[in-house]
Design a protein around this nucleic acid. Structure first.
Ligand SMILES: [Mn+2]
Ligand SMILES: [Mn+2]
Ligand SMILES: [Zn+2]
Ligand SMILES: [Zn+2]
Lengths: 149, 149
DNA sequence: TAGGAGTTAAGAATAAATCTTATTTGATGT
DNA sequence: ACATCAAATAAGATTTATTCTTAACTCCTA
């Protein structure tokens, strides 16, 4: 749980370390993703940034997110929704996905994180990470309060 | 581990129960998916069926897979590849995904399956299922034997 | 503060999936 | 076997998400 200042400093350091220019667009996209808790799509981000960067192109959002992903600053969330969903890389966590409205909810599961993988996986190759995806219907959808966003 | 005859019988029964016609296309698509171990995309399936059903349209593959998914006969696999990947619904299992070539490998993890979810998830809504997705690089890719399919 | 590599905006292009419509087919009853 | 017809399909158009192309722009360094 770093404070925003520190995270932004790390962001800038990472960009510099990779010879990337600190453009207004990159700063704002990253900042927006940091603030967000909703795992936005590129399109959602683009809309949310419209006020601050009225000329920002959707392509730049996609391109920038891909760049950040390569630097390990951003993750693409495991989901089957048609649009990709993103989040700033923070601590290790997992996701609940509402099959009805597409909402993503973070949760932590230390017991799982500390478990070793089953034997059968020892031979498949190099393992990078393991994640849990829980599917279901969120509370709001159950109570019929909210329609598909 | 049902034998194919039995599974096909169950398939036909399910279709009938839902008032679906047993078309040549539906039979062949389902049979092909049953045989397959590679979690094919709609396009891959379409190509593989070209010999048996030369006039089969890609749209029918998509439409049929969607129908089967609704009946619970087919699952869309959790993956971030651009094309959706499918499998016939069999027993509960999880997936290793090779980030390099897109190969999907099944594995079982009873210990995980029998675990309860963390407390924090008790309040999010109704839970339908929980799955593990392991990312990494497969053996073949590590030894540089196989390029992107 | 000038130069230049890297970055962006805009719109074209591509790729995956879905929709439209005319034709065909599986199921049902004869 | 044959007629009927709702359901399903083939073909191709369309939509949607994402990526590419290119000319203009902007951060960085000297
Ligand atoms: Mn998250
Ligand atoms: Mn599988
Ligand atoms: Zn919901
Ligand atoms: Zn591989």
């Amino acid at each position: 749980m770093n404070d925003t200042q520190q995270v932004m400093a790390h962001f800038e350091a990472t960009c510099r370390a990779h010879g990337l220019k600190l453009t207004h667009q990159r700063m704002e996209i990253y900042r927006m993703l940091l603030q967000s808790t909703e795992h936005p799509s590129a399109e959602t981000l683009h809309k949310q940034l419209a006020t601050r960067l009225p000329t920002l192109s959707l392509d730049t959002v996609y391109r920038t997110l891909a760049t950040f992903e390569e630097l390990g600053l951003v993750k693409r969330v495991e989901t089957m929704s048609s649009q990709a969903r993103f989040e700033a890389v923070i601590d290790q966590h997992h996701h609940f996905f509402c099959d009805q409205c597409g909402k993503l909810i973070d949760f932590h599961w230390h017991l799982f994180d500390s478990m070793g993988l089953p034997e059968s996986l020892q031979t498949v190759g190099r393992i990078r990470n393991k994640n849990v995806v829980v599917h279901g219907v969120c509370d709001q959808c159950l109570s019929g309060e909210k329609s598909r966003s």
